[in-house]
Design a protein around this nucleic acid. Structure first.
Lengths: 142, 142
DNA sequence: TTCTTAAATTAAAATGATTCTAAACTATTG
DNA sequence: CAATAGTTTAGAATCATTTTAATTTAAGAA
């Protein structure tokens, strides 16, 4: 006999929200599932909003923006700045870098563990590194 | 006796425009001087527009945008994507990277000659590298 | 369960950077 | 100097994102 009837997915999203002290509202739960169940990927606000609509989740675009930012502040997501036209959010919050396909706007992660950057100058006085981003911009081969 | 009465600066801006086959209009000449005389630096469209106004150059914001993009296409400028809110243009078009001060939005160049990046995976099939950007994001110490 | 209230959601308006439009100039060339 | 292709521009349009202010809801108390 199971005492818990929640699906593992539900529990997972709920656990994540609890862990960062965000109220598990219907909207946040649904967005958390869309974001974290599929494994590492990248979304824009517009894309996540479309995914919500496509899967019957009722949520406004404003809430999608709010939620993406709240999740980012909470460390559940990372913002990736590669394109001045739109903001990407990454569900992979471990140390890593990106390939960026300039033509179609896609991102692919590069594990940061193996990447070693040498020859950088000293960090300016009074500042500290908050993050190092390596972006490899790709175009179509000839 | 001098046969040329142009200042070196004027000649320089003119030479640059000629080199990339852009008509040396009053506006482009003035913007070229604002951009290339001070040596390497970074501007946003709005900032360059303000500089033009401050120095009595009559030019519209639309032309500033047009010119920045034309100069970029011509290889006279480079676009730097570090902040999703605004686009920076860099007069340094040699191989280099950036420190980015997150709090005040400033950029400082890092010479690319000494920087060595190891451990990157192979470039995806059918794609080629158009550029590698290293952005070191800085926040205030403590 | 019901009440209370702070937190969350939302539609719609506002914002801000950037691009577009189409009309008025201007550099270049014959 | 005239013709014309390339430029500039004011102002409108666009588009991602944020804000506003009103409505709804989650969570804890009673």
């Amino acid at each position: 006999m199971e005492t818990h009837t929640h699906s593992p997915h539900f529990t997972d999203a709920l656990a994540r929200l609890r862990a960062v002290k965000l109220r598990p509202t219907r909207q946040r739960m649904a967005l958390a599932r869309l974001l974290f169940e599929p494994g590492d990927h990248h979304v824009t606000a517009e894309l996540l909003y479309e995914q919500a609509q496509a899967t019957g989740v009722q949520v406004s675009l404003a809430t999608v923006y709010n939620t993406l930012h709240q999740f980012t502040s909470a460390g559940l997501l990372r913002e990736v700045v590669v394109d001045s036209a739109r903001t990407y959010f990454d569900t992979n919050v471990t140390d890593h870098h990106h390939f960026f396909f300039e033509d179609r706007g896609g991102l692919v992660d590069i594990d940061g563990a193996n990447v070693d950057i040498r020859g950088l100058p000293a960090v300016p006085e009074g500042a500290k590194i908050s993050r190092v981003d390596v972006i490899i911009r790709l175009s179509r081969q000839d």
